[in-house]
Lab assay of single mutants.
Amino acid sequence: MSGIALSRLAQERKAWRKDHPFGFVAVPTKNPDGTMNLMNWECAIPGKKGTPWEGGLFKLRMLFKDDYPSSPPKCKFEPPLFHPNVYPSGTVCLSILEEDKDWRPAITIKQILLGIQELLNEPNIQDPAQAEAYTIYCQNRVEYEKRVRAQAKKFAPS
């Protein structure tokens, strides 16, 4: 494992614990031996107030490669969400998460999670990743928002 990646992720964890947006979660997972795995984080993004996503808490896994922060983490909703920019596998399609697009090593975990929260309610229809959600979003916004509200209710924190 890269010392650069681990040191950056340790800084990220410290900064997150000191200050993070209300309702968001970002925690490194534990290895079988109980030690912390900084390369694999369990996160959760709350649906934004005043949107059909409100009330939901959407679980996301963030996986970092050894060359982080040169390369972005892979962000994957578990379980996958109904959304035009979420692949059926759950992987998020967002330009700041793509090395050859808008990724920059200075982007923080907090910025990534806030960017994904923004994307939930403002899909990028130029870059669809899920045919069904994309089609319904474009053709029947009322039905799309109904499905999103049902999903938010399903993923409401207990």
Score class of each variant (00 low, 15 high):
residue 32 P to L: 15
residue 5 A to T: 08
residue 53 W to K: 02
residue 112 I to R: 08
residue 113 L to C: 13
residue 154 K to E: 11
residue 75 C to K: 00
residue 119 L to C: 05
residue 112 I to V: 12
residue 75 C to S: 10
residue 145 E to F: 08
residue 139 Q to R: 12
residue 110 K to R: 11
residue 140 N to I: 01
residue 126 Q to T: 14
residue 118 E to L: 10
residue 55 G to Q: 11
residue 132 E to G: 12
residue 53 W to R: 04
residue 77 F to V: 03
residue 122 E to L: 09
residue 103 W to H: 06
residue 61 R to G: 08
residue 109 I to R: 04
residue 21 P to S: 08
residue 4 I to G: 06
residue 86 V to M: 11
residue 152 A to Y: 00
residue 102 D to N: 05
residue 109 I to K: 00
residue 109 I to L: 11
residue 82 F to K: 01
residue 135 T to A: 10
residue 74 K to P: 03
residue 18 K to R: 14
residue 125 I to V: 10
residue 127 D to V: 02
residue 146 K to R: 13
residue 124 N to C: 11
residue 93 C to W: 02
residue 57 L to S: 05
residue 122 E to G: 07
residue 106 A to I: 07
residue 80 P to A: 14
residue 103 W to G: 05
residue 151 Q to R: 01
residue 9 L to P: 02
residue 79 P to L: 10
residue 27 V to H: 12
residue 83 H to Y: 00
residue 141 R to G: 06
residue 55 G to S: 09
residue 124 N to A: 05
residue 141 R to I: 09
residue 27 V to D: 02
residue 70 S to P: 05
residue 124 N to S: 06
residue 62 M to T: 08
residue 148 V to A: 07
residue 121 N to R: 09
residue 85 N to D: 02
residue 123 P to G: 01
residue 121 N to C: 09
residue 92 V to E: 01
residue 76 K to I: 14
residue 37 N to S: 13
residue 18 K to V: 13
residue 113 L to R: 00
residue 144 Y to C: 01
residue 138 C to Y: 01
residue 120 L to S: 03
residue 77 F to S: 03
residue 65 K to Q: 14
residue 101 K to E: 13
residue 42 E to G: 10
residue 26 A to P: 01
residue 127 D to A: 03
residue 155 F to S: 09
residue 18 K to Y: 04
residue 62 M to I: 08
residue 36 M to S: 04
residue 142 V to F: 10
residue 107 I to T: 10
residue 115 G to E: 05
residue 120 L to N: 02
residue 58 F to L: 06
residue 104 R to W: 03
residue 123 P to K: 00
residue 40 N to Y: 09
residue 109 I to N: 03
residue 7 S to G: 06
residue 34 G to M: 07
residue 5 A to G: 12
residue 158 S to P: 13
residue 76 K to E: 14
residue 29 T to A: 04
residue 38 L to R: 01
residue 134 Y to H: 05
residue 114 L to H: 11
residue 150 A to K: 13
residue 92 V to A: 09
residue 67 D to L: 08
residue 102 D to G: 15
residue 45 I to H: 00
residue 110 K to A: 04
residue 76 K to R: 14
residue 48 K to R: 11
residue 134 Y to R: 02
residue 10 A to T: 10
residue 17 R to S: 07
residue 124 N to L: 00
residue 89 S to P: 08
residue 23 G to D: 01
residue 52 P to L: 08
residue 98 E to K: 14
residue 126 Q to P: 02
residue 85 N to Y: 01
residue 131 A to T: 14
residue 98 E to G: 15
residue 114 L to Y: 11
residue 33 D to N: 07
residue 120 L to Q: 03
residue 31 N to Y: 12
residue 75 C to W: 03
residue 22 F to L: 04
residue 7 S to N: 15
residue 33 D to G: 03
residue 130 Q to H: 11
residue 125 I to R: 02
residue 111 Q to R: 15
residue 118 E to N: 10
residue 122 E to T: 11
residue 33 D to E: 06
residue 40 N to D: 13
residue 86 V to A: 07
residue 74 K to E: 11
residue 117 Q to L: 07
residue 110 K to N: 08
residue 38 L to V: 09
residue 133 A to M: 03
residue 107 I to V: 14
residue 77 F to P: 03
residue 127 D to S: 02
